[in-house]
Amino acid sequence: MVWIVQGVGVAVLVAVAPWMWGIAQTVKARCQGRRGPAPGQLYWIIRKHWHKETTVPDRSSWVFRLAPSVSMASLVLIVITIPIAGRVPPEWPHNMLTLFFLLALERFWSGLAGLDTGGTFGGLGASRITTLGTGIEPALFAALGIAWQVSGDGAIVPLAAHLTNGSASLLPWALASVSVALVLLAEWGRLPVDNPDTHLELTMMHEATLLEYDGRFLALSEWAMALKFTALVAFAWVVLGPQFSSLWANLGLRIVEMAATAGALGWLESRLTKLRYFQLPAYFAVAAGIGMLGFYLASGGLGL
């Protein structure tokens, strides 16, 4: 049963990823007073790219060509290791640490691909996304502090079950949630950290590494970008959100949560501007600080 739910969950998550991305874009446009694309627009874009001829820059190598596949494979693997419905079989890997390592793999390979083109933009993007990673990693580890405390070995367990035994634990939970949200904004590559819609060399980060891609590679990359968003939303809700006892219900809940998150993100992005690149360390410090505070409260500090 668990196997089936997990399988279905993975399939659904991978399948709806572009749609979730689309929701965010649509809501954002609406909030800005534009009509914007339909939520399913990204499917059409991906389809269009897929059927175009694929070209690669003359100086690039197999590293460049493999990058979209590596991104996609590691993200799918992340999805597979997340207990989407709240539970996976014990013999199945489900570990936050693993998940972060896989995210790092994806980032590493994008960075390599950026440098492989031998152009300016690729290097720019590679430098920026890997630097971004140095902010994200410690902040993410701090934000999920409560999760370490509960699981003890980094397993992805729903925190809700452990934190509801008293109103005092609500504060750490809330702090952790804020912190996770801040970090995930960065990890998704959305405002206020990165703007996926920009193609201005001064502002783009992740887009810069994709600049030389087209055709099937670009299609895979776009899908991977959307999947990253979906996977991390699902992960955050699994860890921090409420759970039903029924697995199928949980699965349904995830879909709703993801859509809601995408909508909220779209609304939020219409209210934000991009931070300066050199202000990002402060942003991550705030996120990490909130997470650490939550962790300290939860670990028995301050007598809570």
Binding site: E53, T54, V56, P57, D58, R59, R65, L66, T117
Partner: peptide, 11 residues
């Protein structure tokens, strides 16, 4: 994504 089936162009 048929990594072998690509055309090389100047960057």
């Amino acid at each position: 994504s048929r990594v072998w089936d690509v055309r090389t162009v100047p960057r």
